[in-house]
Structures are given as structure tokens and as C-alpha cells.
């Protein structure tokens, strides 16, 4: 396997690839859409959406991108990093600036005091305060590393199933967005409804499904 493995200073919260070790906690998505005959054509869009580390000078607080499944710092992805026979395995990496609130407030107070003293005024306007906060935040980003979160994704292309090793709804929404941008394919989350559609209902069952009323086993009067 190849790949760029420069290691910038980041807070790193990552469990070893769950598909390889330990117990498995995941949600399944069904892939909606046609696949190309040659899956290797996916390598280009994957590389295009590979993780680009956050830059303190940017006005971006959070960014997600692909990395190698067992190595979040490997973002220069080669064929062998991604394709495991019929599986497409990727790490879904999200970096976020998470400056501790007390630190930001303390630095902001310091900066405000300095500006007020320099301008000879009692207080700053709301706009000046917002601008100062942006400035202080950017300055702190050079000192405080971003936090990093990596979740593994394994796409069984033959089955049309993606296993995403996190059950966080927010992370799920982010990965659906990146998957669509990368592959042009929609991820449909597994649920009683989508699984029923997948296992297949007859016309009569479909009609009964439409009229379903929830079951209750409650005793009368409960």
C-alpha cells in the first residue's frame, strides 16, 4: 500500500479499523444507482475528495474527506489502498477546529482590553467585537490543533451495501453527502421500510403494508 503519511499535529480520536478488529457497530446503507463496469474509475473522484487538512488561515471550521481505512494521515490514495476485491474501503475523516471556550474567552478579553486601551474608548461596538473574535479565533488556530475523527466505511459493491462504522446521525448525514459528491450515488439508510423494500413485498403485501396499524399488547385500560 502506498500513501502520503505526513502527520500534522492534531487531536486524533480513532479506533483501529472496526472491520478488522473488535466488535462491530455500524449502520447499513443501500446504494441507489448504477455502478460503472470498471470500478477503478472511482479512484479519480475518490482522490479528488481525499481529505485536505484544515489551514488556520481559511474561514473553514470543519472539513470531511476520504483517507486510507487504517491510516487517517494517508490521503494520497492508490488503488491498493482502497480496493479490497469487491469491497471499497475508505476512512471518512473529519477535522474540526475545537478551541476550548474558556481559552477563547480569556484571549478575547485580553485582546479587547488591549484595543480599548489603544483607542482610548470605554468599550467596543458589537461589530468590532465580532471582528476581534474572528481575529483571535484565527490566531488561536495556529496554536491549538484541530480535532480529528475517523470512521471506517466498507462498501460491498456486489451487494450494493455500505457499512458505516458509526451510528451518529450527524456523521451519517455528512458521509451521505460526501458519498453522493464522490460517486454520484445516493445512500439510503436501512430502516424497517427500506429493508422491507429490499427483501421484496408482493403486491398484496405492499397493499397491506400501506394500511399497517401499530401493534399493542397493552392490557385493556392500560
Amino acid at each position: 500500500m502506498s500513501g502520503q503519511t505526513s502527520r500534522p499535529f492534531v487531536w486524533y480520536t480513532h479506533a483501529p479499523m472496526p472491520a478488522l478488529k473488535g466488535s462491530l457497530t455500524y449502520v447499513r446503507y443501500f446504494v441507489d444507482g448504477e455502478l460503472p463496469a470498471d470500478l477503478s474509475t472511482f479512484l479519480k473522484p475518490i482522490r479528488l475528495r481525499a481529505m485536505k487538512p484544515l489551514d488556520p488561515a481559511e474561514d473553514v471550521a470543519e472539513r470531511s474527506g476520504w483517507c486510507r481505512v487504517d491510516e487517517p494521515f494517508a490521503t494520497d490514495l492508490a488503488y491498493g489502498d482502497v480496493f479490497f476485491n469487491e469491497y471499497v474501503n475508505l476512512g471518512f475523516r473529519t477535522d474540526r477546529w475545537a478551541i476550548p471556550g474558556p481559552l477563547l474567552r480569556a484571549k478575547l478579553r485580553e485582546a479587547e482590553a488591549a484595543v480599548v486601551a489603544k483607542k482610548g474608548r470605554e468599550r467596543l461596538s458589537r461589530r468590532e467585537r465580532t471582528e476581534l473574535k474572528d481575529l483571535v479565533t484565527k490566531r488561536l488556530r495556529r496554536e491549538v490543533p484541530p480535532s480529528m475523527r475517523v470512521v471506517d466505511l466498507s462498501w460491498a459493491t456486489g451487494d450494493g451495501i455500505v457499512r458505516f462504522f458509526s451510528q451518529s446521525p450527524r456523521t451519517g448525514a455528512l458521509v451521505q453527502e460526501l458519498f453522493l459528491k464522490t460517486f454520484g450515488l445516493r445512500l439510503v439508510p436501512e430502516a424497517p421500510y427500506t429493508l422491507a423494500a429490499r427483501v421484496g413485498l408482493t403486491r398484496a403485501q405492499d397493499k397491506a403494508w400501506e394500511g399497517l396499524e401499530p401493534l399493542t399488547l397493552a392490557r385493556e385500560g392500560a
Binding site: L20, S23, L24, T25, Y26, Q167, P189, E190, A191, P192
Partner: peptide, 21 residues
């Protein structure tokens, strides 16, 4: 063994039989 979450039909903490490694 695993936990089945009914409303999402998702699996958590799936412990598989011993495998290669």
C-alpha cells in the same frame, strides 16, 4: 452476539466467532 436497534434495524457491538488475524 449483538444488540439490535429496532427502529433503524442496525447492529451494535457485534461479536463474531474467532477469525483469522
Amino acid at each position: 452476539s449483538f444488540t439490535l436497534k429496532a427502529e433503524s434495524m442496525s447492529v451494535a457491538g457485534l461479536k463474531l466467532p474467532a477469525v483469522l488475524g
